[in-house]
């Protein structure tokens, strides 16, 4: 994958407020390709809003945002997917009535290789595409451990399984940068370990991962860099070791959980 070691995503002075609430104030960051970048901070710190700004769900009030050199400001979220940005949602947003497999298949939206007329007269190219999508989907489901559940409705999965399905669906878009919002929320210890293994595997393949997470153990073990946010502001940024050593951060946020 391209961009390993280079700056893949760059934000400068991002701001967003809702009515009176300044959810994100003046956040700047550089995310290096092929790394795991974690965003932590107390509830309401603006982490999800930052992710929403990066994925295009919201447009910032001010600031710049580029992804592999392309200006992202003003670009709707569905266009950003074409450039290689994918995401999961903190409040799970699966297609609940559809099967697990169908959820992943929907993720191939941008990658079909079917001549237009074959949408109506299904021919050889159509069947090849269907097979390829099914194989890829099966691989993705195997990766997140959901292959045996392919044909049940997504809404009937356990909470942890639903989070993993969101990851598989996002990966189906073949992203270069994957944003995951609290992937470990509601997971049991074994599931967290599996999740950790999967993120490591993705990074090993060159994927860049941005992760918002409250599970400090997971963050400290896996993140290459950590951004600490508080009240929408940039509090500190550094490696896990830096963060653990920073007195302000410990006081503001980590205190209770580290001890």
């Amino acid at each position: 994958m391209t961009g390993a070691g280079e700056i893949l995503l760059r934000a400068e002075g991002l701001r967003k407020s809702f009515g009176g609430v300044q959810a994100v104030r003046d956040i700047s960051l550089d995310i290096t390709g092929g790394t795991v970048f974690a965003v932590i901070g107390p509830n309401g710190a603006g982490k999800s809003t930052l992710l929403n700004l990066m994925s295009g769900i919201y447009q910032p009030d001010a600031g710049k945002l580029t992804f592999s050199g392309v200006d992202m400001i003003g670009m709707p979220s569905h266009r950003r997917v074409r450039h290689g940005l994918a995401r999961t949602f903190q409040k799970i947003r699966l297609f609940k009535q559809l099967s697990v497999l169908e959820n992943v298949l929907a993720g191939f939206h941008l990658h079909h290789q079917i001549p237009p007329w074959q949408y109506i007269l299904h021919g050889a190219a159509f069947r090849r595409d269907r097979e390829r999508c099914r194989d890829d989907a099966a691989n993705l489901l195997a990766f997140v451990g959901l292959k045996p559940r392919a044909h049940v409705p997504a809404g009937s999965l356990s909470y942890g399984e639903q989070r993993m399905l969101e990851v598989a669906r996002a990966l189906a878009t073949a992203p270069r940068l994957l944003m995951i919002d609290e992937p470990a929320a509601g997971l049991n210890a074994a599931e967290v370990e599996a999740l950790l293994g999967r993120i490591v595997a993705l990074r090993a393949r060159g994927m860049t991962v941005v992760m918002v997470e409250h599970n400090m153990d997971l963050v400290m073990r896996i993140a290459d860099r950590i951004l600490v946010m508080d009240y929408g502001q940039h509090l500190f940024e550094g490696t896990p070791a830096d963060v653990q050593a920073h007195p302000g951060v410990i006081a503001a946020y980590l205190g209770a959980e580290v001890r």
């Binding site: 569905h78 947003r93 699966l94 297609f95 009535q97 939206h109 941008l110 669906r169 996002a170």
Partner: peptide, 11 residues
């Protein structure tokens, strides 16, 4: 099913 979610897949 979910338009926001669909947009996150490039739709």
């Amino acid at each position: 099913e979910d338009e926001v979610s669909a947009a996150s897949l490039g739709v």
